[in-house]
Design a protein around this nucleic acid. Structure first.
Lengths: 216, 216
DNA sequence: GCGTAACCTTACGCACGAGTAGGTATGCTG
DNA sequence: CAGCATACCTACTCGTGCGTAAGGTTACGC
């Protein structure tokens, strides 16, 4: 039988780098829809408009493919947040910018978020990878809190800071899930809500306190 | 070949109810260690000290078995938290008791927690089940906040409350994960930390505020 | 214009694990 | 002690999906 190349005149041979991105796009989409195990290499290949052996040739077996997805999405996200980083601002402003960048990213890459977090959490082979990245985030937040404390000449045990940071990261992840599930929801508004809980706490919220962004 | 029953004199025939619990224990253990897909029915059967067909006879196919695990662990947890519920207390006290019960449960049933949450999150067939339960928790928290607000004659849009509650639940889940991964960590202390973040927020924590339980 | 390398295909092997068929032992009831 | 329900086993079938072998097609350098 003839190859697809000659059957379909619209089909084009493409350089490796391009195909790889197409495959990763497809993989992220399928992984996020089906979950790691239920996603089949055949479906990913088909969705990428290419045949399975090409996927193996370029990106290796399933596990490597998933890690590649993880890596790409992770890098994008870190970049997005890093772009908003500004170490010399007051802590609430730093937190706010970080959150806004984070929720903005999730809102714009809902599939990516899903594959990155929801899938990875439960799968033992990848959970470690994710934990490492989360640890980096926790460290950043904890460092920020620590800075703020030292500026006042006070100190808190490191474990406490870490746990607090962990809670904040967890809350953000959950709201990100919520955002990913509610396509009509507004990332900016979600970030504001998260900022309110994180900064003011339930106690002050009940008493009517509100945190608002300084600009706009 | 002879049946195990006659080969091993120490082996005992047991009534269905007992075996079912043994199977569920084994299933929770294996599911939590391997993840839903990587867990094999053979391993679960072996771990339960029984043969595979018995598992199928009593608890049905893999999916049903997992749901059964989910159900049992879920019931246990709800019971544990419900036992600490006391609607007539001030909101901070209510939150505190709920958190303490929650972290106490997770600390005592780390496998159960793992199978309940970490696994379920990513697997499409079960995610709905979990979402329902989480929704119940969110509703409870949101209701509590709402009560506190109405008592002051104020009101907040329902979506806002829901999102805030969602964030609190998410933060608790994350700290529970952390707790499950750190066997040496103390559930009580973790609950206290969570309470501090949730109630006071990062802003007040930085300024040195501390929340402490009223009793003990 | 022609080889060679890169691109791309169809079609298969093979392992693994869910679920089952069919038969054996045991204890309870009369 | 017959009869019957229940607990329990070994040993299979069979689908599914990962990963690959072997071969066809197009572009590019000379």
């Amino acid at each position: 039988m003839l190859a697809r190349v000659s059957t379909n005149p619209a089909f084009k041979r493409l350089p490796r780098a391009v195909r790889e991105q197409q495959m990763l796009d497809a993989a992220v989409k399928v992984f996020s829809r089906r979950g790691y195990h239920a996603a089949s290499m055949d479906e990913i290949a088909e969705d990428a408009g290419i045949s399975k052996p090409m996927v193996y040739a370029y990106l290796g077996p399933k596990e490597d493919l998933f890690v590649a997805c993880l890596h790409r999405e992770c890098t994008r996200m870190i970049e997005a947040i890093a772009g908003a980083a500004a170490p010399d601002l007051p802590p609430d402003e730093r937190l706010w910018r970080g959150l806004r960048a984070f929720f903005g990213f999730v809102g714009a890459h809902r599939d990516g978020w899903s594959v990155l977090y929801r899938q990875t959490r439960g799968e033992p082979p990848f959970a470690g990878q994710l934990a490492t990245m989360r640890a980096r985030m926790v460290e950043v937040i904890a460092g920020m809190l620590d800075d703020a404390l030292r500026a006042q000449g006070r100190e808190v045990r490191e474990t406490d800071l870490e746990v607090i940071a962990y809670a904040l990261v967890g809350a953000s992840e959950s709201l990100a899930d919520w955002l990913a599930d509610n396509p009509t929801a507004d990332p900016e508004k979600t970030a504001t809500r998260m900022m309110n809980v994180a900064w003011l706490g339930a106690g002050q919220l009940i008493e009517g306190a509100v945190w608002r962004p300084a600009d706009g």
